[in-house]
């Protein structure tokens, strides 16, 4: 794991990607800090980070697009697979290297509340818990990006899909507000989900009968649920959207609350997608 970690970190700084990433992240957080703290005269650093959340949809794809896709395209994965290391070690090494690239600017950002405190009364608790939340949110998003990268051989495809996903997650809050919660809409949306799952099953198994069966059973279950317990569906879709709206998990930190459940949520998402990445690579080897 350490070998892969060192190599990944090295290659980030070998082709200036790492420097550009760190510089851009610091630049954007700096701009938002000036806007929120120095121009608007708020002593709350968590406000600056709240605005800075917008950089994630654009930065995460740049960070993660190459991670697995490029190994596949260059066939260097064969070196990793034939070496006496576990797939999990390879994936974790890569993941921790990317996390380190986020951690470096975040450590620099840790000095910002101190700088702001020279000009006003900063409450350090909320400021630093916001930094931790911001970093962990970045970790979770990185894991999602890495998983997307493991699905394709083309880093540009990986970048675009990750960007789209990140933007969707970022604007999820607004989407939820726009949505009216009625049982019919939920039924349609869950139906779309069910079909999407069926397609996913097909892409994994290439078995039309099984995937059509899965889609059919899900749709039938939904229709039955709709006809007997429509109230269960009425707010169901909104609940689901809320639970995957990862960016809204930062909101409590904006209000100065140290929300441990959100931190656990970020770590769980990260762990889940690292696990998915390992599975996705293993699956490719078994095909």
């Amino acid at each position: 794991m350490i070998a892969v970690y060192k190599k990944e970190l090295k290659s980030f700084f070998q082709n200036i990607m790492g420097f550009v990433f760190i510089a851009f992240m610091l630049l954007m957080i700096g701009i938002f800090t000036i806007a929120a703290n120095f121009a608007s005269l708020y002593p709350n650093f968590e406000y600056a980070l709240f605005s800075s959340l917008l950089i994630f949809p654009f930065l995460i794809p740049i960070l993660t697009m190459r991670s697995i896709a490029e190994e596949k395209r260059q066939r260097t994965e064969q070196l990793l697979f034939s070496a006496p290391v576990r797939i999990s070690d390879i994936v974790l090494g890569k993941y921790f290297a990317m996390i380190t690239i986020i951690l470096i600017p975040m450590l620099i950002v840790c000095t910002y509340p101190l700088i702001i405190s020279r000009y006003g009364a900063v409450s350090f608790g909320p400021a630093y818990s916001a930094i931790i939340a911001f970093f962990l949110l970045g970790c979770a998003l990185t894991a999602i990006g890495m998983f997307v990268s493991s699905l394709t051989e083309n880093q540009i495809v990986a970048a675009i899909i990750t960007l789209a996903l990140m933007l969707l997650l970022y604007f999820m809050k607004n989407l939820i507000q726009m949505m009216t919660s009625s049982a019919v809409i939920s039924l349609i949306m869950f139906g779309v989900f069910a079909i999407a799952i069926a397609f996913l099953v097909y892409s994994l198994t290439h078995n039309i009968a099984v995937s059509a069966g899965v889609g059919f059973v899900l749709v039938i279950a939904l229709v039955l649920l709709y006809s007997f317990y429509p109230e269960a569906l009425s707010s169901g879709f909104i609940t689901v959207l809320n639970s995957i709206s990862i960016f809204s998990r930062y909101d409590n930190f904006y209000f100065g609350i140290l929300d441990l459940s959100s931190l656990v949520y970020f770590i769980s998402v990260a762990a889940l997608f690292v696990f998915f990445t390992i599975q996705s690579i293993e699956k490719r080897r078994w095909n």
Binding site: V4, K7, K10, S11, N15, Q74, L79, L80
Partner: peptide, 18 residues
Amino acid sequence: PLYTDFTVREYLKFVSEL
């Protein structure tokens, strides 16, 4: 399976660690 951004020596060092 070569990492083309690396020098030969750096690459072989990585493989040794791996």
